[in-house]
Write a protein that binds this DNA or RNA. Structure first.
Lengths: 138, 138
DNA sequence: GTGTTTGCAAAGTGTTTGCAATTTA
DNA sequence: TAAATTGCAAACACTTTGCAAACAC
């Protein structure tokens, strides 16, 4: 799946984020940042990186949160009860398949929303999320 | 808060939805469908309707799901780990304040997304969610 | 009466946390 | 060796479920 990022490519990524390159983080980052955009849940990433024995689920959660805080990942909330982590940190939107739980990126589209002046007083816009929800035709 | 719906107004609402008008459902519907649009979590609704003693939290969840299945409510997912229920079932979008957890309705805005032909094969569009995420200026 | 709904408590998910042992710098 | 990170297990928050008693039709 994709081009495996070498440890030499990963080290600067983690270093720049101020995160110590532990064996676990290198494994996670190596799988996540191979050049292709991905959407994963903690559980999926845990399994993809070897599951129990390779690392612990708590470390996956811990690392995902650290990566997110460092700006390496974005969270996507489309489904109550679980969080997706998106390796595409640029501006874009999503298609969410309610049947399969699968997420797809779509390019940012013009959203003609109200001006900043219409936001609640004392708040600033942090992000515009657009989700096209689809379902399998039955 | 708002004009309290009378039992006579509520009965047809529940009846039309195919739901038996129990004391608990009348209380919940009375609070929810008073004419003003609302966003509530199960917990908030539970408290608003009297909390323990008046009904059980399980019944609130149960009823919210029934109301939603009947089309009386919409679910809004903006925050991993809890679901908001929206009494506005028409087409509209939201502003979500990440600081306070407060949700606000905004009118539907033109979203120039790709045509149906670009949706994943075998799927149909069920909804377009647009969420403006805001944060308190610090 | 018959089928539905309630309430309780228990179970289920996904995620976070406390803390001792380990690892990185 | 000082500070950060791991792993485990326990704790959490939210939601669902099983089942007997209560209720609506």
């Amino acid at each position: 799946m994709g081009l495996m990022a070498s440890k030499d490519d990963l080290l600067p990524v983690l270093k720049r984020a101020g995160l110590r390159p532990t064996r676990q983080r290198l494994a996670l980052a190596g799988w996540l940042f191979d050049g292709a955009n991905k959407h994963v849940t903690a559980e999926e990433l845990f399994v993809a990186c070897g599951g129990d024995g390779a690392l612990s689920l708590a470390t996956v959660y811990n690392s995902l949160n650290k990566f997110t805080a460092a700006g390496l990942l974005h969270q996507v909330v489309v489904d109550g009860g679980r969080v997706y982590f998106d390796t595409n940190t640029g501006v874009h939107h999503h298609i969410f398949d309610e049947t399969t739980g699968f997420l797809t990126d779509i390019p940012p589209m013009p959203v003609n929303f109200l001006g900043m002046s219409d936001l609640p007083a004392g708040t600033i816009l942090t992000r515009v999320d657009v989700v096209l929800r689809v379902r399998a035709v039955k």
